[in-house]
Amino acid sequence: MKVTERQKKKFVKSLKQARIEAGLSQSEVAQKIGTSQSFISKVESGKISLEVEIFLKLYQLYDKPAMYFFSAFSQK
């Protein structure tokens, strides 16, 4: 199954929204998960792919249900 550009955009938008709702800056997130602010920026803009390990760290940090991020891939 191919991931569409629309799905990708919705997924990265959910990452950014979760960060904002958590009250964190990109720099704060980067520090907490051991990466750079520019990396977080590139992930949120869809310029680079997100590794599973990094996603799991963000998932735990943002404390959102999985469907918050994966609703972009629902069959609805």
Score class of each variant (00 low, 15 high):
K9A: 15
K9M: 12
K10C: 07
F11A: 04
F11P: 04
F11V: 03
F11L: 06
V12T: 11
V12K: 01
V12P: 05
K13R: 15
K13T: 10
K13I: 04
S14L: 06
L15G: 00
L15D: 02
K16M: 09
K16H: 09
K16F: 04
Q17D: 10
A18I: 15
A18W: 14
A18K: 13
R19E: 09
R19Y: 08
I20R: 10
I20M: 02
I20F: 02
E21M: 11
A22R: 11
A22L: 09
A22H: 11
G23H: 00
G23F: 01
L24G: 00
L24Q: 08
S25L: 08
Q26S: 10
Q26N: 13
Q26W: 08
S27V: 06
S27D: 09
E28A: 05
V29R: 07
V29E: 02
A30Q: 13
A30D: 11
A30G: 05
Q31W: 10
Q31H: 10
K32D: 03
K32S: 08
I33C: 05
G34V: 06
G34F: 03
G34P: 02
G34T: 07
T35G: 09
T35Y: 01
T35L: 09
S36P: 11
S36Q: 02
S36L: 13
S36N: 07
Q37M: 03
Q37E: 14
Q37K: 13
S38Q: 14
S38V: 14
S38Y: 04
S38A: 15
I40E: 00
K42A: 15
V43L: 07
V43N: 01
V43H: 00
V43C: 02
V43T: 03
V43A: 00
E44W: 01
S45M: 15
S45F: 06
G46R: 11
K47F: 09
K47L: 03
K47A: 12
I48V: 12
I48L: 09
I48W: 01
S49F: 05
S49R: 11
S49M: 15
L50Y: 03
L50K: 09
E51G: 08
E51Y: 10
E51P: 09
V52A: 10
V52N: 06
V52C: 07
V52R: 07
E53T: 13
E53W: 08
I54K: 15
F55E: 00
F55Y: 01
F55K: 01
L56Y: 08
L56K: 13
L58R: 05
Y59D: 05
Y59F: 11
Y59Q: 10
L61R: 03
K64E: 15
K64S: 13
P65T: 05
A66K: 09
M67L: 11
Y68P: 06
F70T: 02
S71V: 02
A72G: 04
S74H: 12
S74C: 15
